[in-house]
Design a binder for these strands. Structure first.
Lengths: 117, 117
DNA sequence: GCCATACATATCGTCAGTCGATATATAGAG
DNA sequence: CTCTATATATCGACTGACGATATGTATGGC
Protein backbone atom coordinates (compact mmCIF):
# COMPACT_ATOMS: atom_id res chain seq x y z
CA UNK A 1 0.00 0.00 0.00
CA UNK A 2 0.97 3.63 -0.06
CA UNK A 3 2.37 3.55 -3.51
CA UNK A 4 2.17 7.09 -4.72
CA UNK A 5 5.32 8.91 -3.71
CA UNK A 6 5.32 12.06 -1.72
CA UNK A 7 5.76 15.36 -3.48
CA UNK A 8 7.23 17.97 -1.16
CA UNK A 9 6.49 20.78 -3.53
CA UNK A 10 2.86 19.78 -3.90
CA UNK A 11 2.63 19.34 -0.16
CA UNK A 12 3.44 22.98 0.52
CA UNK A 13 0.93 24.04 -2.10
CA UNK A 14 -1.70 21.74 -0.59
CA UNK A 15 -1.33 23.33 2.81
CA UNK A 16 -2.29 26.69 1.39
CA UNK A 17 -5.18 25.26 -0.59
CA UNK A 18 -6.53 23.32 2.36
CA UNK A 19 -6.38 26.34 4.64
CA UNK A 20 -8.54 28.20 2.15
CA UNK A 21 -11.00 25.34 1.76
CA UNK A 22 -11.20 24.84 5.52
CA UNK A 23 -12.09 28.42 6.22
CA UNK A 24 -14.83 28.23 3.61
CA UNK A 25 -16.29 25.10 5.17
CA UNK A 26 -18.90 26.91 7.24
CA UNK A 27 -19.58 30.04 5.28
CA UNK A 28 -18.92 31.71 1.96
CA UNK A 29 -16.30 34.44 2.05
CA UNK A 30 -14.52 36.79 -0.28
CA UNK A 31 -10.75 36.64 -0.69
CA UNK A 32 -9.73 39.42 1.61
CA UNK A 33 -11.90 37.97 4.37
CA UNK A 34 -10.34 34.54 3.88
CA UNK A 35 -6.92 35.99 4.49
CA UNK A 36 -8.05 37.78 7.65
CA UNK A 37 -9.85 34.73 9.01
CA UNK A 38 -7.03 32.29 8.41
CA UNK A 39 -4.67 34.61 10.19
CA UNK A 40 -7.07 35.11 13.09
CA UNK A 41 -8.03 31.47 13.43
CA UNK A 42 -4.40 30.41 13.54
CA UNK A 43 -3.36 33.20 15.90
CA UNK A 44 -1.13 34.62 13.21
CA UNK A 45 0.72 31.41 12.51
CA UNK A 46 -0.64 30.98 9.00
CA UNK A 47 -1.14 33.96 6.81
CA UNK A 48 -1.62 34.76 3.16
CA UNK A 49 0.08 37.51 1.28
CA UNK A 50 -2.29 38.79 -1.35
CA UNK A 51 0.23 38.00 -4.03
CA UNK A 52 -0.15 34.40 -2.90
CA UNK A 53 -3.83 34.27 -2.08
CA UNK A 54 -5.46 35.36 -5.31
CA UNK A 55 -3.58 32.98 -7.58
CA UNK A 56 -4.57 30.14 -5.23
CA UNK A 57 -8.19 31.21 -5.35
CA UNK A 58 -8.12 31.25 -9.13
CA UNK A 59 -6.51 27.84 -9.20
CA UNK A 60 -9.12 26.40 -6.85
CA UNK A 61 -11.82 27.88 -9.02
CA UNK A 62 -10.31 26.39 -12.16
CA UNK A 63 -10.21 23.01 -10.44
CA UNK A 64 -13.86 23.33 -9.49
CA UNK A 65 -13.22 23.16 -5.75
CA UNK A 66 -14.71 26.58 -5.10
CA UNK A 67 -17.07 28.71 -7.08
CA UNK A 68 -16.73 32.48 -7.11
CA UNK A 69 -19.37 35.06 -7.88
CA UNK A 70 -19.25 38.82 -7.76
CA UNK A 71 -21.51 40.19 -5.08
CA UNK A 72 -23.47 43.07 -6.54
CA UNK A 73 -24.94 44.25 -3.25
CA UNK A 74 -24.41 47.93 -2.62
CA UNK A 75 -20.99 47.57 -1.09
CA UNK A 76 -17.52 47.32 -2.45
CA UNK A 77 -17.16 44.86 -5.27
CA UNK A 78 -16.26 41.50 -3.79
CA UNK A 79 -15.81 38.09 -5.26
CA UNK A 80 -17.46 35.67 -2.90
CA UNK A 81 -16.35 32.07 -2.90
CA UNK A 82 -18.37 29.04 -1.87
CA UNK A 83 -17.14 25.50 -1.41
CA UNK A 84 -18.43 23.12 -4.05
CA UNK A 85 -19.28 19.49 -3.41
CA UNK A 86 -16.01 18.50 -5.01
CA UNK A 87 -14.25 21.03 -2.81
CA UNK A 88 -15.79 19.57 0.30
CA UNK A 89 -14.79 16.06 -0.69
CA UNK A 90 -11.31 17.26 -1.57
CA UNK A 91 -10.94 18.96 1.80
CA UNK A 92 -12.04 15.85 3.61
CA UNK A 93 -9.91 13.44 1.59
CA UNK A 94 -6.77 15.55 1.53
CA UNK A 95 -7.05 16.31 5.22
CA UNK A 96 -6.95 12.60 5.91
CA UNK A 97 -4.06 12.12 3.51
CA UNK A 98 -2.06 15.03 4.93
CA UNK A 99 -2.79 13.78 8.42
CA UNK A 100 -1.29 10.41 7.56
CA UNK A 101 1.76 11.97 5.97
CA UNK A 102 2.55 14.28 8.86
CA UNK A 103 1.95 11.52 11.35
CA UNK A 104 4.47 9.34 9.52
CA UNK A 105 6.83 12.26 9.24
CA UNK A 106 6.75 13.07 12.93
CA UNK A 107 7.17 9.41 13.71
CA UNK A 108 10.41 9.34 11.73
CA UNK A 109 11.66 12.62 13.16
CA UNK A 110 10.85 11.77 16.74
CA UNK A 111 11.99 8.17 16.66
CA UNK A 112 14.56 8.16 19.42
CA UNK A 113 18.04 7.12 18.48
CA UNK A 114 18.95 3.52 19.08
CA UNK A 115 19.70 4.06 22.72
CA UNK A 116 23.45 4.24 23.09
CA UNK A 117 24.42 1.65 25.65
CA UNK B 1 4.78 33.67 21.73
CA UNK B 2 4.98 32.12 18.30
CA UNK B 3 5.55 35.37 16.57
CA UNK B 4 7.51 34.48 13.50
CA UNK B 5 5.12 33.74 10.68
CA UNK B 6 5.02 30.52 8.85
CA UNK B 7 6.95 30.18 5.63
CA UNK B 8 5.46 27.52 3.40
CA UNK B 9 8.46 27.40 1.14
CA UNK B 10 10.87 27.02 4.01
CA UNK B 11 8.62 24.40 5.48
CA UNK B 12 8.98 22.11 2.48
CA UNK B 13 12.72 22.61 2.54
CA UNK B 14 12.82 21.89 6.28
CA UNK B 15 11.06 18.58 5.80
CA UNK B 16 13.79 17.40 3.48
CA UNK B 17 16.54 18.67 5.74
CA UNK B 18 15.05 17.09 8.82
CA UNK B 19 14.62 13.74 7.11
CA UNK B 20 18.33 13.78 6.32
CA UNK B 21 19.33 14.82 9.82
CA UNK B 22 17.02 12.23 11.38
CA UNK B 23 18.48 9.37 9.43
CA UNK B 24 21.96 10.47 10.49
CA UNK B 25 20.98 10.53 14.14
CA UNK B 26 22.22 7.05 14.93
CA UNK B 27 24.98 6.49 12.44
CA UNK B 28 27.08 8.26 9.87
CA UNK B 29 26.11 7.55 6.29
CA UNK B 30 27.03 8.62 2.81
CA UNK B 31 24.51 10.32 0.54
CA UNK B 32 23.38 7.39 -1.50
CA UNK B 33 22.74 5.42 1.68
CA UNK B 34 20.74 8.27 3.17
CA UNK B 35 18.42 8.22 0.19
CA UNK B 36 17.95 4.45 0.43
CA UNK B 37 17.37 4.52 4.18
CA UNK B 38 14.86 7.35 4.13
CA UNK B 39 12.91 5.52 1.48
CA UNK B 40 13.05 2.22 3.36
CA UNK B 41 12.27 3.70 6.76
CA UNK B 42 9.22 5.48 5.41
CA UNK B 43 8.04 2.50 3.36
CA UNK B 44 8.56 4.49 0.22
CA UNK B 45 6.54 7.49 1.32
CA UNK B 46 9.46 9.88 1.45
CA UNK B 47 12.18 9.69 -1.10
CA UNK B 48 15.00 11.79 -2.44
CA UNK B 49 15.83 12.28 -6.04
CA UNK B 50 19.58 12.60 -6.32
CA UNK B 51 19.13 15.95 -8.01
CA UNK B 52 17.51 17.04 -4.76
CA UNK B 53 19.58 15.19 -2.22
CA UNK B 54 23.09 16.38 -2.99
CA UNK B 55 22.30 20.10 -2.97
CA UNK B 56 20.62 19.59 0.41
CA UNK B 57 23.64 17.78 1.75
CA UNK B 58 25.91 20.59 0.60
CA UNK B 59 23.62 23.15 2.17
CA UNK B 60 23.56 21.29 5.48
CA UNK B 61 27.32 21.08 5.37
CA UNK B 62 27.62 24.81 4.71
CA UNK B 63 25.35 25.47 7.66
CA UNK B 64 27.50 23.28 9.86
CA UNK B 65 24.72 20.84 10.67
CA UNK B 66 26.56 17.89 9.19
CA UNK B 67 30.19 17.29 8.44
CA UNK B 68 31.25 15.30 5.44
CA UNK B 69 34.50 13.49 4.83
CA UNK B 70 35.66 11.31 1.98
CA UNK B 71 36.17 7.75 3.04
CA UNK B 72 39.39 6.47 1.60
CA UNK B 73 38.85 2.85 2.54
CA UNK B 74 39.38 0.46 -0.32
CA UNK B 75 35.88 0.75 -1.66
CA UNK B 76 34.09 3.14 -3.94
CA UNK B 77 34.71 6.75 -3.08
CA UNK B 78 32.02 7.90 -0.66
CA UNK B 79 31.42 11.08 1.18
CA UNK B 80 30.34 10.12 4.67
CA UNK B 81 28.30 12.56 6.68
CA UNK B 82 28.08 12.80 10.44
CA UNK B 83 25.68 14.88 12.48
CA UNK B 84 27.39 17.74 14.31
CA UNK B 85 26.34 19.03 17.72
CA UNK B 86 24.61 21.94 16.03
CA UNK B 87 22.90 19.49 13.69
CA UNK B 88 21.62 17.45 16.59
CA UNK B 89 20.28 20.53 18.32
CA UNK B 90 18.74 21.74 15.10
CA UNK B 91 17.03 18.40 14.55
CA UNK B 92 15.63 18.43 18.04
CA UNK B 93 14.47 22.03 17.99
CA UNK B 94 13.01 22.00 14.52
CA UNK B 95 11.25 18.72 15.14
CA UNK B 96 9.46 20.34 18.05
CA UNK B 97 8.66 23.41 15.99
CA UNK B 98 7.40 21.42 13.01
CA UNK B 99 5.38 19.26 15.37
CA UNK B 100 3.64 22.33 16.74
CA UNK B 101 2.94 23.71 13.30
CA UNK B 102 1.45 20.52 11.93
CA UNK B 103 -0.57 19.99 15.07
CA UNK B 104 -2.06 23.47 14.69
CA UNK B 105 -2.59 22.86 11.01
CA UNK B 106 -4.45 19.62 11.51
CA UNK B 107 -6.48 21.25 14.21
CA UNK B 108 -7.67 23.88 11.77
CA UNK B 109 -8.29 21.41 8.97
CA UNK B 110 -10.13 18.93 11.10
CA UNK B 111 -12.14 21.43 13.11
CA UNK B 112 -15.66 20.25 12.38
CA UNK B 113 -17.99 22.75 10.81
CA UNK B 114 -20.23 24.60 13.17
CA UNK B 115 -22.53 21.68 13.64
CA UNK B 116 -25.54 22.30 11.46
CA UNK B 117 -28.57 22.09 13.73
C1' DG C 1 -16.23 68.54 -0.55
C1' DC C 2 -11.57 66.74 -0.16
C1' DC C 3 -8.13 63.70 1.14
C1' DA C 4 -6.08 59.88 3.56
C1' DT C 5 -6.77 55.36 4.80
C1' DA C 6 -8.62 50.79 4.80
C1' DC C 7 -10.82 47.63 1.86
C1' DA C 8 -10.60 44.58 -2.26
C1' DT C 9 -8.85 42.33 -6.33
C1' DA C 10 -5.24 41.47 -9.68
C1' DT C 11 -0.72 40.83 -11.99
C1' DC C 12 4.22 40.82 -12.65
C1' DG C 13 9.22 40.06 -11.76
C1' DT C 14 12.23 37.77 -8.80
C1' DC C 15 13.87 34.15 -6.20
C1' DA C 16 14.15 29.60 -4.01
C1' DG C 17 13.94 24.95 -4.47
C1' DT C 18 12.50 20.53 -6.58
C1' DC C 19 12.91 17.48 -10.47
C1' DG C 20 14.56 15.08 -14.49
C1' DA C 21 18.35 14.65 -17.38
C1' DT C 22 22.98 14.32 -18.03
C1' DA C 23 27.83 13.50 -16.80
C1' DT C 24 31.46 10.94 -14.64
C1' DA C 25 33.51 7.10 -12.47
C1' DT C 26 34.17 2.57 -10.13
C1' DA C 27 33.04 -2.14 -8.29
C1' DG C 28 31.08 -6.47 -9.07
C1' DA C 29 28.43 -9.96 -11.72
C1' DG C 30 27.93 -12.85 -15.65
C1' DC D 1 34.60 -7.37 -21.26
C1' DT D 2 30.29 -5.51 -20.90
C1' DC D 3 26.34 -4.37 -18.19
C1' DT D 4 24.28 -2.97 -14.01
C1' DA D 5 24.25 -0.97 -9.48
C1' DT D 6 26.67 2.11 -6.72
C1' DA D 7 28.08 6.90 -5.94
C1' DT D 8 28.52 11.89 -6.45
C1' DA D 9 27.70 16.12 -8.94
C1' DT D 10 25.64 19.79 -11.79
C1' DC D 11 22.55 22.03 -15.05
C1' DG D 12 18.19 23.59 -17.16
C1' DA D 13 13.33 23.69 -16.87
C1' DC D 14 9.51 24.30 -14.17
C1' DT D 15 6.69 25.49 -10.21
C1' DG D 16 5.09 28.31 -6.76
C1' DA D 17 5.63 31.82 -3.00
C1' DC D 18 6.60 36.52 -2.18
C1' DG D 19 7.10 41.56 -2.53
C1' DA D 20 6.05 45.31 -5.29
C1' DT D 21 3.02 47.60 -7.97
C1' DA D 22 -1.44 48.83 -10.02
C1' DT D 23 -6.30 49.93 -9.90
C1' DG D 24 -10.44 51.16 -7.93
C1' DT D 25 -14.07 51.96 -4.14
C1' DA D 26 -16.04 53.09 0.32
C1' DT D 27 -15.47 55.50 4.68
C1' DG D 28 -14.14 58.71 8.14
C1' DG D 29 -11.71 63.03 9.49
C1' DC D 30 -11.31 67.79 8.68
Amino acid sequence: MEDRGFDVQGFARDIHELLVLATLRDEAKHGYQIALDVETDSNGLFRFRHGTLYPILHRLEDEGLVRGSWSKGGGRRKKVYVLTGAGRRHLSGETTRVGEIVSRLMELLRRPGEVPA
